[in-house]
Simulated scan of single mutants.
Amino acid sequence: MNFELSYRKVLRSLLVVLIASSFGCKSAKNVIASGEASNRLSAKQVIKQHQKNDVDFRTMQAKVRIDLRQGNKEQGLTFNYRMEKDKTIWLSAPLGLARMMITPDKVRFYNKQDNEYFDGDYALLSDFVGVELDFNKVQNILLGQAIYDLKEEPHKVEVSENSYALQPKDQNALLELFYLINPSHFKMDSLQLYQQLKKRFLQVDYKSYQEVKSQVIPKDIEIVAVENTDEVGVTLEFKSVSINEDVRFPFKIPAGYKEIVIK
């Protein structure tokens, strides 16, 4: 594989992550996880607190540094990042040379350097991780929330290294799912998916959170996707986060671009 730094390769790598996922604002501050997990909390109580602490905003914008690691090769870029909750996730590379927009129906991006574009649904993303993905699951990964509705089936919980280790009582034989919930703000410390038959593993670790206008939002996310012996690592660092400001999502695939088919 050629690891030369290009906007196309970084955006393709970001697509893998989404498969596997006011500027200068001074109101953001780091969230210090000082809580202590208690064996007295039931799974239902942990789930209730986790869902209660879901973020509540209309829009968000930030700078996000995305770094890709595969083998001993690394590359990265800083993107403009915007979200309209439950509707749109948008990324733009410097000078608008490449853009990505994700909506409930579409995963799309284009690259002006190579005159190429991708326009598809969630089938490709779902096939990669072996989990049926949709916009809500991708959004939840970016916001530190569980990707499934935790009230749909019984769960069990135990304390593990000062996190609430939450898992379904009856794990699916084809897909094992684990959440680690932080005892301070009840957002995720980690999401882990195992597919033993397909030798796939996905782990999303939330290294730190930040508070913006009373909303707890991930600051540093580390993602590792493994299939057989192939491993890809991606880190995302969110900076200069602001919420509930008017944002636009300019996106139009230029005429004459070649469609990218990712296999």
Rank of each mutant, 00 (worst) to 15 (best):
K169C: 05
L143W: 05
E161T: 10
T103D: 06
Y122C: 09
F118Y: 15
Y164H: 02
V157W: 01
K112I: 00
E161W: 00
N111I: 08
Y148F: 12
S160R: 10
M101D: 04
G144T: 11
F128G: 01
H155M: 08
D121T: 13
F109Q: 10
A62M: 06
E153K: 14
N72S: 10
H185W: 02
A173M: 04
G130S: 08
I102N: 03
R69D: 10
E153F: 13
E116R: 13
V159T: 07
A123E: 15
L143S: 03
N80K: 08
F186W: 09
L68V: 12
Y117Q: 08
A62H: 03
S92N: 05
Q75K: 08
Y148G: 00
D86C: 02
L150H: 05
L143I: 08
K187I: 02
L166K: 02
G76I: 12
Q75D: 05
V157I: 11
E84G: 01
Y122W: 08
M83R: 05
Y117I: 05
A93Q: 08
I66V: 15
N115T: 14
N115F: 10
A93Y: 04
D105P: 11
A173V: 14
L150E: 04
I147H: 03
E152D: 11
I147S: 02
A173P: 01
G130V: 06
D149F: 09
V159M: 01
L143H: 03
K169Y: 05
I102P: 00
D119L: 12
Y164R: 02
E161R: 07
M83K: 12
